[in-house]
Design a protein around this nucleic acid. Sequence first.
DNA 1: AGAATGGAACTGACTGGTCAGTCCTTTATC
DNA 2: GATAAAGGACTGACCAGTCAGTTCCATTCT
Lengths: 214, 214
Amino acid sequence: MTQTARSDHRRSLSAQRRAQREEQILETAMQLFAEYGYSDTDTQLLAEKLQVGKGTIYRYFPSKRALFLAAADRVMRLMRQSIDERIQGIDDPFERISVGIRAFLSFFAEHPEYVELLIQERAQFKDRKKPTYFVHRETNIKRWQELYRSLIEAGRIRNMSVERITDVVGKLLYGTMFTNYFLGERPCVEKQVDDILDVVFYGILSDTERKKGR
Amino acid sequence: MTQTARSDHRRSLSAQRRAQREEQILETAMQLFAEYGYSDTDTQLLAEKLQVGKGTIYRYFPSKRALFLAAADRVMRLMRQSIDERIQGIDDPFERISVGIRAFLSFFAEHPEYVELLIQERAQFKDRKKPTYFVHRETNIKRWQELYRSLIEAGRIRNMSVERITDVVGKLLYGTMFTNYFLGERPCVEKQVDDILDVVFYGILSDTERKKGR
DNA sequence: AGAATGGAACTGACTGGTCAGTCCTTTATC
DNA sequence: GATAAAGGACTGACCAGTCAGTTCCATTCT
């Protein structure tokens, strides 16, 4: 009994320590993968940055590949978390949407290295069925669709398929994230959110043309 | 004189032949790069596919890197060309825009391997100042801005910055191209164009909400 | 016409360097 | 002192790029 308890204690201590170390490795690995790209990242260099033997890394992750994929998953977890924090407690659906969009864009604007990781993932692991981003997207998108549906029911958005909306908005955000990263300038997120909401909410047609078309 | 003429003839013949061969190499290289990714593409395999010695490839391109970048440039040339053909002779600006969007999306939907190449480029050559896609984008976007400007002057689009429009539409198209490719199903381009035009032209707000907001 | 020539195009075995992953030794922990 | 963790030298696979040798072909010579 005492024996078991003690060994449990010991195990849990080392498990905690292990988790901590794992997180350290993931964080540093992510930086290196983002900086040098997957294949140009030498595990030797990673070991040196961590001030650890190369063998140690392989005690935590079975292969370079597994290490990378774990880092990519971590990014998406962090994203979800960051957005959740920002929209928590906001009730007005419009407000919720615009804060959500802002949170998404800021997250990646503040962490360009995460975008790089997503690109690296797609470039190196084409065989995987679906990129991490889209695996997470599927779960997340449902929440947004409910939001839009409630706005339609309230008569604040015109009656149209919510899939159509989330599809277009999702693609727009995805494109914006990449464009921002590729063009390299720190974007003004506020302005971008304004642009997006202005176009998507109001459309670009003039009033006269709008009447003609319907 | 005869000498020069004859040697000119020879030179132009061989130049033609050279160009032809170059094109062959680029086409096959593009397929392999798209299938295996940049670093997993062995130049040896490329040589075998071309039924050519490995050294020959290096007579046409100084390095694997240069070969790849030439292939990426080719993709963007082909894109521009394909869109130009489709919008040629169309006068109505709205029609021109919607056909242009359709042409863009079909081009990449029909050639998913081109999308893969653009991803590979970004993943492997992070040091290059700007990805090929954006280099070409800058030239192309001007034409679209003029189109939108004329529509504003004609009172068919509401008075707003044309940069704002092309920015949003450009990002939306970019995101759509990648999403289509990553999700892997052949998209129904017609439906996508409808979705995009519907949202971007009319906006998603209901009439009552629209009045409120202004 | 047919042979000879020279140089361009092509070839593919080889080299040198790189790096993921292993494994035996050393160090820490209890 | 026994066990677990960490270290880092080592190995073997891999592959871009090279280069010495070969083939091809347009032109010139006989």
